[in-house]
């Protein structure tokens, strides 16, 4: 990939939350993972920013791109498959923030698991 890239902020295994950025134009972060917490599965490396490329600009500086893993049961209220099922999506670094390791945070998001 062309151009210098910043040192990646996250590493595989890190817990991250996907931001809900109010980007009006083109972007590549699906709605259903925004605001959700997952785990970095893989660091793909630096890639040109599609939010800039889509308007004929350079896409620089490159953004680290990650494959982030989510629990399906935390994405869909009525997910019918086993709780071990996962969804993985590519997310650019500027759409991610660190998330706490505390498991309590995760379980509060899943209202059905409340006692």
């Amino acid at each position: 990939m062309p151009g210098p890239a910043a040192t990646p902020r996250f590493q595989p295994g890190d817990r991250v939350r996907v931001l809900s950025l109010n980007v009006r134009g083109h972007h590549r972060t699906p709605w259903y993972i925004q605001g959700k917490t997952g785990v970095v599965e893989r660091l793909h490396g630096p890639y040109l920013n599609p939010e800039s490329l889509a308007y004929g600009a350079s896409g620089l500086p490159p953004q680290p791109l990650y494959l982030v893993r989510f629990n399906q049961s935390e994405l869909w209220e009525d997910y019918s498959g086993p709780r071990s099922d996962k969804l993985l999506a590519d997310v650019f670094e500027h759409w991610l923030e660190p998330a706490s390791d505390a498991p309590a945070k995760v379980s509060t998001q899943d209202e059905r698991s409340s006692p």
Binding site: H26, P50, L53, A54, Y55, G56, G59
Partner: peptide
């Protein structure tokens, strides 16, 4: 014409 522009046009 980049893929990103193509997608922006589709959107």
């Amino acid at each position: 014409l980049s893929s990103d522009e193509l997608r922006r046009g589709i959107e």
